[in-house]
Amino acid sequence: MIRRVALTLALLFAGTSLAVLPAHAEELCAVDLNGNGDAADPGETASCTAMTGGSWQCPIQQVSCTIGTGNQYACPLGAQYRCAAPVSGGTPTCSPNVCIDTGQNPIVSEPVVDDPGAANDGQVDAQGNCLGNIQIFSGRALRCRPPGLLDTFQNCCADKGKIVKDGMGSSLMSLSTKITVAKDLFTGIKAAYTAFKAGATASEAASAGAHAIIVGIDPTTIAISLAIDFMVEVLLQGCDEQDMETGMLKGSGMCHEVGEYCASSVLGICIQKAKSQCCFNIKLGRIIQEQGRPQLKNFNAIGWGPVKHPDCRGFTAEEFQALDFSKMDLSEYYADVESKAHSDIQVDMKDKIDAYVQAINP
């Protein structure tokens, strides 16, 4: 049997400037149609319809009522289901699913992952060289949300194309520069989201974000026009700040998906899922992490860590030196730097990484 669980879900977005969100509490219902224990899958959540008599009706599995005995409307699903006409007018309908007030049954949400990455808290010498332990290709734990109740049914995890350009370049400095790109993306996305919430249009907010992104970095490392288009679309979809950051990095091939978990629930029923990610500063970091971790016993027990709180730490210098690059498939990376022969790229890449490690850990 289909397990029916219908819930009234109030989204308290009053006072926000997000045009795609309601400015008042909205009656919603969620139904576990496929019996998997949650109501977070496509088609399992919907806005309840205002009916005559001050009631609400769930449109999921809703059917039209028929004329029955005594010329009265009757619900074909059973006499226990009440027929009512929409306030907007039309034929009376009925639904097997009810709406329940979240004022009495609040939505419980997991805290948004807020991982600043590895702290730069070691001592340095007069030249700025690290004197302590370093992490190589360190990442950050982030999350994005697939279509669900709390992201206005939009897919905030959808790839929007390659915005961040990844390549080793022709100098050691180019690698160092690219390692700062993700940090500048976060700065720009935060600026865009803050401007949007303060009342700017999506286009104005995206332009402000793009300006913040390119300050201090080589503009050739990011496709600014694509970034602006991406930010406009995401802002109008109702995705939040971290959805935006994760989407931009994920679409550029810089994130490893760790798993999916329930981000919000009511009465123990999941109504919004999230996908946890380990996102790295460059695409090469993600590729080497994915293929390097299985080679190291230090990661055998933890893998990528718990789904809700991924372990995105970088390699220690000793772990990095133990990696066997000959066993790695770097074809995905080669495709991004097609101007060189594969063998030359592999040698060049290894030399540059070794040189970079030597520079920051003499």
Rank of each mutant, 00 (worst) to 15 (best):
M1E: 13
R4D: 13
V5M: 10
T8P: 01
A10C: 12
L11A: 07
L18E: 15
V20K: 05
E26C: 01
E27V: 13
E27L: 10
V31C: 09
D32Y: 04
N36H: 05
N36G: 04
N36Y: 08
D38V: 01
E44D: 07
T49Y: 03
A50H: 04
M51L: 11
T52D: 15
S55F: 08
P59T: 00
T66S: 12
N71W: 12
A74P: 02
G78E: 05
Q80I: 06
Q80L: 08
A84L: 02
A85S: 15
V87A: 14
T93G: 02
C94Y: 07
C99Y: 05
I100L: 14
P106W: 04
E110T: 14
E110K: 10
G117D: 09
A118M: 06
N120W: 06
D121G: 08
Q123G: 11
V124F: 12
N129L: 10
G132K: 03
Q135W: 01
I136N: 04
R140Q: 13
A141H: 05
F153Q: 15
C156S: 07
C157S: 08
D159L: 03
G161K: 09
G161S: 12
G167R: 08
G167L: 08
S170I: 06
T177I: 11
K178A: 15
I179G: 08
T187G: 01
Y193A: 09
A198T: 04
A200D: 14
A205K: 02
A208T: 14
A212F: 04
I213V: 15
G216Q: 05
D218H: 06
L226V: 01
L226Q: 14
V234E: 13
Q237N: 14
G238V: 07
D240I: 07
M244H: 01
T246N: 08
G253I: 00
G253R: 00
H256Y: 10
E260P: 00
Y261T: 12
S264W: 01
S265K: 11
S265L: 09
L267P: 00
K273L: 07
K275V: 13
K283E: 14
R293H: 02
P294N: 05
L296D: 10
K297E: 13
A301K: 13
I302C: 06
G303C: 05
P310D: 00
D311Q: 10
C312R: 03
A317H: 03
Q321L: 04
F325P: 08
S326H: 07
M328G: 06
L330S: 07
L330V: 04
V337N: 14
E338T: 14
S339W: 15
Q346I: 09
K350H: 07
